[in-house]
Design a protein around this nucleic acid. Structure first.
Lengths: 138, 138
DNA sequence: ATCCAAAAGTTGCATATACAACTTTTAGTA
DNA sequence: TACTAAAAGTTGTATATGCAACTTTTGGAT
């Protein structure tokens, strides 16, 4: 029988990636609910912590997110008091934002290592290879 | 230097998967704009075509999408005239829906084969392995 | 047939995301 | 310095998604 999405060896790449992203996002989200943020928010906070003063446009390129989406993500962080108000001059964490970013990074480190372990080197290498083939090199 | 997301070998699995999903979604979306649908919509149409009468709950499990999200996705298809109005008794394509699903499948087949080729067996196997490790077996 | 618990489906609310069109800022050049 | 084109950022509109709470449907057990 031929059921869309079930063919051995010819499954839908986009469908599969989207499903996996949903699954893994759920798992990471769980880990961050204790901090009151989503993974997407935590990820941004950690990046801004690591690259203070970074521009939205650069983040958008790094993450391959449309600039308007990034604008809104950033506005949300700011509304929560985690960013200073000079959005257009580069992004900087407030004190609260810095504390939160550090707490998130602790959780992220543990979880991500655990997930790496569970998945194994083959999977991680596969993902790396996929990244190299898909991510535009600027 | 240690920049979040840039560490060799310890990158964020969730972040990476989400980025790849965004990239590949964009590419598949392009292919379906000619049909006036997104990839998500086309994917649903193709699944309902392949499994007529399927329940939302089953689709939600297959795709690992929350049932409320699925409910809305399905409502959108119906609003566009692609589904008959008996949502709760199983999903069926209208004539227009059937025609559209077939057209989408043609495009999907070409694109997906092309992407498979581009990525290569290693990547595809890596994704398969990842799926096996992440997707809950019902 | 009746009743009840579990499953399915919906709705309210919030976030994440894209595209198009618009405004603002920045940088280079005359 | 003034002008202008490109880059950056924002806003309108729409889809995709999750969680919680609610309603409806379904399948047994009596």
């Amino acid at each position: 029988m031929h059921v869309y999405g079930m063919e051995a060896g010819t499954y839908c790449i986009a469908g599969r990636l989207r499903m996996l992203a949903r699954l893994i996002t759920g798992r990471y989200n769980e880990a961050f609910t204790a901090e009151g943020v989503t993974f997407a928010q935590a990820g941004l906070l950690m990046r801004i912590f690591a690259q203070p003063g970074i521009r939205q446009s650069v983040l958008a390129r790094q993450l391959q997110i449309e600039k308007s989406a990034m604008s809104r993500d950033v506005q949300l962080l700011q509304k929560n008091g985690w960013l200073t108000d000079n959005r257009r001059k580069g992004l900087f964490l407030t004190e609260a934002g810095t504390i939160l970013a550090k707490r998130c990074h602790k959780r992220w480190k543990v979880l991500n290592a655990q997930v790496h372990d569970e998945l194994g080197a083959d999977v991680v290498n596969g993902l790396t290879l996929l990244s190299e083939k898909l991510i535009p090199t600027p």
